[in-house]
């Protein structure tokens, strides 16, 4: 029998894969991919809670997260293209303008 815990643990594992990506990748594009993974991991958690508690709110949140992810991709990709045109690279280490 698959319980809520199964889904939540799956969600946690996926989230941590996303975290690994965020920590590890230096390429801006792949960093964005990792954030997509994080968002999806959370979505699974929301949908599971929604199902096991019989409440639609979770699904609503997942729905809005999808909307936010879509806008994030649109803006993020735009910015990334601008950056690439200027610098010719997407490497995070090249972005040191905020050096303290």
């Amino acid at each position: 029998m698959i319980t809520l815990s199964h889904y939540l643990i799956l969600s946690a594992i996926l989230f941590c894969i996303g975290l690994i990506g965020v920590y590890r990748r230096k390429n801006l594009l792949l960093l964005l991919f990792s954030t997509e993974i994080l968002l999806n991991a959370v979505n699974i958690g929301f949908a599971a809670v929604s199902k096991f508690y019989g409440d639609l709110t979770g699904q609503m949140f997942a729905f809005f997260i999808i909307a936010i992810a879509a806008s994030e991709v649109a803006v993020g990709l735009g910015l990334m293209i601008v950056w690439y045109k200027r610098r010719g690279t997407l490497d995070l280490d090249s972005m040191q303008s905020m050096h303290g």
Binding site: I68, A70, S71, V75, L77, L79, R86
Partner: peptide, 20 residues
């Protein structure tokens, strides 16, 4: 928000891509 994001995407990645 999606509309705004769409406009932002178009503006950012739009025609004048040689300018920031």
């Amino acid at each position: 928000m999606l509309l705004v994001a769409m406009i932002a995407g178009i503006v950012l990645a739009g025609k004048k891509m040689d300018e920031s």
